[in-house]
Design a protein around this nucleic acid. Structure first.
Lengths: 221, 221
DNA sequence: ATTACTAGTAGACGAGTAA
DNA sequence: TTTACTCGTCTACTAGTAA
């Protein structure tokens, strides 16, 4: 396998157009580009040339460098790996955590018809009045943050009897094969390691879980 | 800037799904994957964690690693650079070389109506009976090879007076703003550093060039 | 200006090993 | 099994410099 630093150097040449024609570079300019010394840049270019990944034509004040077919293949292989990482083909996120007890607030809110109806129309099921609270593992917290960037459904707040109920947002998810939803209250700053899950039925009973049992939630298409 | 080896390590984690959830890895398995020692892999992971590019949850028999939002941004930045290299947006190839004299064969072939007509219909101009031969610079030869992979126009051979004229292929190109074409005879093994260019007019006269003058040809959309 | 050699050194590497 | 420490080696870096 070609070392990472050499690949980086090859990429720099390609970015300057080295795949489409000879590009004029100096070891100095490559060095500056990659934050290495001129001498190291010189060694990198020599190594790439030896491996047949570039060809060089030296001049008095620099060199014309061209990425060979083989060099381009190396870059393309790398490109494909990155494509795999970012391909949108069924991109799902996995959250892991442990069941915890909430303070029963969820149960109250989910019993309000004005909320209930909105969840029903957007998620496709009538939510059981109650939420399953999950404390995310340390490792899942960054994933939770990325999920924030996805498309959430806006649940509108309302006022009744002189009391105001705020907005919320939710996103479909799955626990095993059960279609569920993650609900996040709109205003309050929620702890970043807690999620609240709603479902068509009482999840604790259905899944046979209780506090501190570990559980996985899948978000995405 | 994040060092190339660390980026490589981050990429390896992402390839295992580290952007979408915690993935179970060991420093041993990462080491094997990247052809480095377990100790070095350990150092890499620590460095990535310190920079906030991954989070880790250690267990007795390995660790759950997650790529953070920031880590994913680094990867995405890299991905975009590769995308730039391979984006098909007006990909043109530049060939450089020096004018040389051919043996007058081109002139003869280009005067044959059966060839002439095909060039006219495919390239959109009636070729001047003669070709401009160019000896490519050392640096341009790898580009010449890549151009082979593009879509060439097939020029059909024919027989007349008991003599057989072979197939050829050609591809549109430009010298400055003049629409030209590169012609390659079908059978013979042509020198890889020579190209033959046809145009609507006598190129030597039009461009005012003679043997050993340097010249550039552009191929592509 | 360049490239790239030599020389000297800093630091990265892997072996061994503790936890 | 792991992770990650220490330690000795040796690679890979940069400075200086020649061509």
């Amino acid at each position: 396998m070609i070392p990472a630093e050499e690949l980086q150097c090859l990429k720099a040449i390609a970015l300057r157009g080295g795949c489409r024609g000879p590009v004029f570079v100096s070891t100095q300019s490559i060095g500056t580009m990659l934050a290495i010394s001129q001498q190291t840049a010189s060694r990198r270019l020599k190594a790439l040339e030896t491996q047949g990944l570039i060809t060089r034509a030296m001049t008095a004040d620099g060199q014309h460098v061209t990425v060979t077919k083989q060099g381009e293949e190396e870059l393309r292989r790398e490109f494909q790996e990155y494509s795999r990482i970012f391909s949108e083909g069924g991109k799902t996120y996995a959250l892991h955590g442990a069941v915890v007890s909430g303070i029963g607030e969820g149960k109250y809110y989910m019993s309000l018809p004005a909320y209930k109806e909105q969840f029903k129309s957007h998620l496709g099921f009538e939510p059981y009045p109650g939420t399953l609270n999950i404390r995310l593992s340390h490792a899942s917290v960054p994933i939770r943050k990325k999920i924030d960037a996805l498309d959430w459904i806006r649940i509108k707040g309302f006022s009744t009897d002189g009391r105001t109920f705020g907005d919320a947002k939710c996103i479909p998810c799955r626990i095993g094969t059960i279609a569920c939803g993650i609900v996040v209250p709109g205003r309050t700053h929620y702890p970043e390691d807690i999620i609240e899950v709603i479902a068509p039925m009482a999840l604790r009973r259905k899944l046979g879980v209780e506090d501190s049992d570990s559980i996985s939630v899948e978000v995405g298409p």
